[in-house]
Design a protein around this nucleic acid. Structure first.
Lengths: 202, 202, 202, 202
DNA sequence: ATATAAGCGAGACGGTACGTCCAGTCTTGGT
DNA sequence: ACCAAGACTGGACGTACCGTCTCGCTTATAT
């Protein structure tokens, strides 16, 4: 075993885990209270009981802190798992309903706003955040669709990626359009995706 | 006394059309140059050769100016009209391709970012802008779908609203995800929407 | 009468005399309270009820503000006028005693500290301040010496400038040395200057 | 057990002479480069290759380090010894000329500025420094004056302390006034001090 | 004609937050 | 117990903009 460096690593006082946790916790609280745009680093430092420099030392931008905060709380935009009964239509409906319910809550709205603002403000941090938040749900969705395909419930040549995108993007769009997301409207999309709209010719 | 108000309306110096045009033009230029987030009212006033107050007098927020600027330039997120041949699939594909091309350009990316930021920053102005930008395309899309339904190319009970939403939201999602929007990917969505993914049981 | 520009001069809102006065007043108060080194621009702005930018707009440095503040209060390091009876020795003694008394007070000490710090921190503003503070006293002193020369009380070829410098610099030195300035010590200098120390040979 | 403390004194690692020397050397270099006001402890530690704590462990303030640094370099404000020929006037002139030359150099200016700033910033360390820097010259000056008095070149009742103060303070004043110190001006003072200005009545 | 009533460019105002710098303290592992 | 390294809280720095407020001036309608 070459090296043998069993201890900490770099010289100097190690990073304070206490401060890190306080910052992320305060970030999540403030995000709920005032939203991304009006959250200031100064406010964040004060309410975490931390010097501003400690924030700037570890994160390059407000978006990056928020990204970390959101991720450390593993808040998802959509439920992470899609139920798996034998009925793919029922399962997707269930998943969509959960998503709609979740996004209808104030936290859900705040989260999505923060996400969108973060993407706009800091493409790098924002994009990473975006993927981490939407990723798990999309992965689960894709797996469920694959299992449905194996069991013959959906077409062998169905474009699963496009299906996943359609379901995810629809909810996002509704939130950004500031239109009420009703279960009924979501079900409409689901029917389109599942059944298509084209008249079956033969 | 039958009106008599032949000319403008109120006493006092009328609003300067020169100033208004200069502000909107400068806004569009700056939007391209620095983006919504980093565009400041001060900068805008300076580069339009206008006093700050003149901006504040007529618009309540940065988002509102941008909304006006974008609208006055009649920049659309999607093409305003969907072609109408007899083939709905070809027409939609054509429309989607135009959209994808348009959003792939730097101006398109900047526009959608500005839009999303405006929604986040000022819900009122942002939402109005949103509707004005996405509206015409969606209207045209819906009309084309209705004509396709009348001609029997798509199902009688197809949910047209959901279909429109799905097509629009998909592109938005791709832009926000910062993923490259390829024609192929867009065609995948189109196939899903048109054909559905469920195995036809009969 | 060429020009005819009777009104204010530049366009835009004129400088607020209220703010200017508040800043200078607050500066003098804070100078007494905390001294030059520990006086901060932030503190100054707050206690003057003024935005920081308003200070930075008109003064280039803390030393410059203090310089203005001190000058606007026309605080002198030494009494501005030397009494003029027939007796030059008595008059100078009187003036020196006043100076010593003045410098012994807390305000005197604070002032001289501020002066010295200002010179060190901002040579330009500091030097101007220095001259304005020491100038009047020195002018008066020189005039009194000239009148004494005319009346034959001091030598025709006496170096008045050097004399003035000697008197002024001595007090400054004592303050900076942090040695108690006693009247007796000052009188010692005065005797040296008036009488010289060299044994008169002839 | 009678003592046994043959080596250093206290337990633990002894103070690093290497660090001490590096700090004082760096201090003198930085003093020349940036001056007292803009010299920071952090900069000093970095350029000495030393931890900040090592500075704070041994010196209470920046002024104290500088005091030490200046003293360890035995830089004097004035020449430490006054020549002693039979001619007191010539000797004093020589000493004054040396002083003027010395203060005219950039190092001299920097030194006196540092000195004055140190006094303003930290009365305790500053005063000690002041005395150490001005002391030797003043002592030598006083001794020379005493020998001159013994040899009858200056009055028996001359106030030697006041004379010394006058000579020293004059140079200080000129430096602080940022006026050029010319030999001629210094000679003027010397004539005043030696000869007085009062008309000899008898 | 002459008030009265806005709108206009300019730019100062009281504020808030920025991101940086440094002070002085604390906490590592190593000497 | 000291040392180098470097993170910690705290606080001031000087800058950038915010949205508001005065200025003198211009351009309308209403008397």
């Amino acid at each position: 075993m070459a090296d043998g460096r069993t201890s900490s690593e770099r010289p100097g006082r190690p990073r304070s885990e206490r401060a890190r946790a306080a910052i992320l916790t305060a970030a999540r609280t403030l995000l709920d209270d005032v939203g991304f745009e009006r959250l200031t680093i100064e406010q964040l430092a004060a309410s975490a009981g931390v010097g501003k420099q400690t924030i700037y030392r570890w994160w390059p931008s407000k978006a990056a802190v928020i990204a970390d905060a959101v991720l450390s709380g593993v808040i998802s935009l959509t439920p992470d798992t899609v139920p798996d009964t034998d009925d793919i239509a029922a399962d997707l409906k269930h998943w969509l309903d959960s998503t709609v319910d979740h996004l209808g809550l104030p936290e859900g709205q705040a989260l999505i706003r923060a996400l969108v603002s973060a993407v706009a403000a800091d493409p790098v941090a924002g994009t990473a955040l975006w993927e981490r938040v939407t990723g798990p749900g999309q992965d689960s969705l894709r797996e469920r669709l694959e299992s449905a395909r194996r069991s013959g419930q959906i077409k062998r040549d169905a474009d699963l990626l496009a299906t996943v995108d359609a379901l995810t993007s629809f909810t996002l769009f509704l939130v950004l359009s500031r239109q009420a997301i009703t279960h009924e409207r979501a079900h409409g999309l689901l029917r389109v995706v599942l059944g298509g709209i084209a008249e079956v010719s033969d």
